[in-house]
Design a protein around this nucleic acid. Structure first.
Lengths: 243, 243
DNA sequence: TACAACATGTGGTCTATACCAATTATAATA
DNA sequence: TATTATAATTGGTATAGACCACATGTTGTA
């Protein structure tokens, strides 16, 4: 591990961060291995523990390291990732990979939501179904999503049928609607508060926030989904047209 | 702004963060307005300036606030965002929005890159062109990308023609290749080091990292691009098939 | 009135220390 | 030998203060 240079114009925390990162990337520490404690790094480099903490904080935020109160700081298995196809259609990919994949319905209710209605080109007061689901791979939550459907277009939609079938399949078979294209926006976010709690991740984890509108063959909006992905072990993968 | 409760089990920094965030969301502070200084917030809440700094750090990382050394902390215009269509094809969208949009070639060279070659289904030793570009909206960098092309498929590709034409157009007109589909992966990252420097953003800004492979009508890989987007003012938008 | 010097206020970095909560290691006891 | 209690080690939170670098405001002088 590289030494800290007190005479460098670069901040001490920055030098230490780069030093640790380089050591991790050069496999001076293997995945899962515990790093020297913050107090040890502080004493070794003759700097304050808070400065060490700031350096490690950054590497933890970036996913390189994992911290466990009472245990230590460990090298994260950063690039062990499962590629995830777009919403509504990746059970097949999970099965292909032999992974245990489940969906848990957190809530299903008829609500009004101006923002979602407007996104769906509906009257802001239009009643909507909101389906809140948690998706898990190997019992680990990775996706938290809210899907909105117009009540008028999906009468008699029942929670128990949602529990036993994919939404995609119900839309197709029961309502005879063929989903054709989707438009999506994605941005990087920090997972916090209720989102982090529901996804069982530590506050401050990097994630992807995703809004998708799916349409039928006549370009009519059929459903709108907002979703949070955890970013540490999963990448979002998709295919699109160039023209 | 909500008061801090020293008896709450919630950490002080967390309460302050939520308090400031709620104030911003309730428009107690307008976009561009300066917040009370860290020292003022510390004194007002009877907590340490470092605790205030930690709370504000989080809101800055999340894009809600902007800090300027020597000036203060300001409310960011967070949701003023330009949606960005996928790579290679959004000059039109920028023009549609009446925005000044330019591309700056940072580097164009013939190189070898095993990782990129393998991504492109080429021999790991195959010579590649690497085109490094910075894209700017209103003179503000928002995208840094490296595009790789097989030298064998793009003989006589010259830097000056890249400066005067879009790559997309050259691929189509000069090489008679019709790009048809693209596969991409996106993940949230922290922009640091050389990337942050080239994009002229502060270290630690949230961004999107993007890898895309574009194919022709015969599903042959034509180009591979890796790119960093800044996340603070831009969302990545795309359309995909559902089937 | 304009400019320069100085003062003040701002965020950035760092140190030292203390205490809390969680986990692990060690010692004592049955 | 196994279990329990205690001690030590770990990261988490917080305080107080200092100094640096940058930006802004104020004052003095030409």
């Amino acid at each position: 591990m590289q030494e800290i240079n007190k005479n460098s114009p670069l901040p001490l925390y920055y030098q230490l961060k780069e030093s640790i990162l380089t050591a991790v990337q050069n496999r001076e520490f293997e995945v899962g291995e515990r790093l020297p404690s913050e107090r040890e790094l502080a004493e070794y480099n003759n700097i304050s523990r808070m400065t060490v903490k700031k350096a490690v904080d950054i590497l933890v935020d970036n996913g390189y390291l994992i911290r466990k109160q009472g245990s230590g700081t460990f090298v994260n298995d950063y690039q062990q990732s499962y590629s995830i196809s777009p919403l509504l259609s990746f059970t097949k990919e999970m099965e292909k990979k032999g992974l245990n994949y489940t969906t848990r319905i957190l809530n299903f209710a008829e609500i009004k939501d101006k923002k979602a209605a407007v996104k769906m080109n509906l009257n802001p007061e239009a009643p909507l179904f909101r389906l809140e689901r948690l998706r898990l791979i190997e019992n680990k939550p990775f996706l938290l999503e809210n899907t909105y459907l117009a009540v008028d277009h999906f009468r008699d939609l029942k929670k128990d049928e949602l529990e036993n079938n994919s939404l995609f399949k119900i839309i197709k078979d029961k309502y005879n609607i063929q989903l054709s294209k989707a438009e999506a926006e994605v941005e990087a976010v920090i997972l916090n508060g209720g989102i982090a709690e529901k996804m069982q991740v530590k506050e401050g984890l990097l994630g992807l926030y995703f809004e998708q509108i799916s349409k039928n063959e006549n370009a009519e909006t059929i459903e709108y989904t907002s979703a949070y992905y955890r970013n540490d072990n999963y990448k979002f993968k998709f295919t699109f047209d160039l023209d």
